[in-house]
Nucleic acid binder design. Sequence first.
RNA 1: GGAGAGGUACCCAAGUGGUUGAAGGGGGCGGUUUGCUAAACCGCUAGCAGGUGUUAAGCCUGGCCCGGGUUCAAAUCCCGGCCUCUCCGCCA
Length: 423
Amino acid sequence: MLDINIIREDKDGVIKELSRRGGDFSKDIEKIYFLDKSWRELLKKSDALKAERNSVSTEIGKLKREKKSADEKIAAMQIISEKIKELDAGIREVRTELKSALLLVPNLIEKDTPYENTVLREEGEVKDLGFPAKTHWEIGEDLGILDFEAAVSLSGSRFALLKGLGCNLERGLANFMLDTHTSKHGYTEIMPPILVREDVMVGTGQLPKFRDDMYALDDGSMFLIPTSEVPLCNLVREKITDASELPLKFTALTSCFRRESGSYGRDTKGLIRNHQFNKVELVNIASPEESEEMHEKLLEESEEILKLLGLTYRVLLLGSSDTGFSAAKTYDLEVWMPGEKLWREVSSCSNCLDFQARRMDARTRGKDSSTVYLHTLNSSGLAVGRIFAAVLENYQRADGSVAIPEVLQAYMGDKKEIKKNTR
RNA sequence: GGAGAGGUACCCAAGUGGUUGAAGGGGGCGGUUUGCUAAACCGCUAGCAGGUGUUAAGCCUGGCCCGGGUUCAAAUCCCGGCCUCUCCGCCA
């Protein structure tokens, strides 16, 4: 949520900044500006009347105690109270409208971000495997560790079913990531609920705007998380976090659920775009002063996993047109897929500044002990299913078997490879 | 799922619709005393949000879980929601 004050002070500037996202927000901002103005006008009137009512009511109390008549004052206050009631009804209405309008406005993009995505650097090399490379779904099905047909029969398209060593690989990857983050990067592991309340989804920005992308319970009371960023960030909601506890670094492995409503026909095969997938997430809760530096560190921490797995990847700075709703600045990590012959996003590393914190009412105390909103950052560390796919495609061999990356071997009973019909 | 009880400040807790502008403890902080510690005594300890001021002082409004309502006036009465606890039932 944007600070209403910057809209009050410079609404045209805000409209201009938001247009960098590639949409026109002028109507929304003008509406917010207008609603805020009328809200303040109504509030001023109501507050003045309440001040009067408060003082006269104490007088009435005094008169009553002295057994004197207060009828005249009571009659006068009846009229004032009626007026207050009307004003307050209007105030509530305007306030509600203002709030819901504000919740639909995305974050401002960091200054100097270009419109289009920029490749910052490439790590590792895109090399030829020396034989016709297969896609991960071909490899996985041939090895008997992926069974999409079975998944379809259970749940329909965009679901995966892992079997045998496939499960071990998925678990191994996740454990390797978690262990690295907890022991090397100082993260606290969390196992959060993956079913959360509406308010929590509003807090991190998934709602109200992206309801169509979320799975909800039948009665609408709860939502399946699309990422554990949701519960992890919301751990600091509605409280003032002591500055001595900062920065907070949380990691979690959870299943994530996405309806993928707008992506018919895209990436219909394999593990890339499924309704349910596993992801190790990294969330940092920082003071405003340290968030920029932490963002760079967070990127490194995510990259570390790719490096240790020996995967070729590149780092993108997302352009203003591609940066997500809540983020001010985002780096993407894309891994090379020799089978698909393209780069696949496996991590998105964002600094949301105080955007989510305002929605969550998550604060800390600044140096002068006044309250300030926290900064929230999140990064995938990493998307397990997509890394599963990347490992298959990058470590495949001409005979159809797949070598197990060295760092994973300890997580897979010291096996060195996945062959057909091995358990 | 059924039946109850309850949500008041950092914690415990009182609270008859109008000096509650929230009692009283505990804890914390400061002080007196003291060689030091303890004890005792004294003092402070509602934070926060919003509006309005020149990002001042000040003033005003709202805050007793949240949201409505009744009333001249609500922590107190009524309705709804959320949460916690107890008992019963069911259950990995």
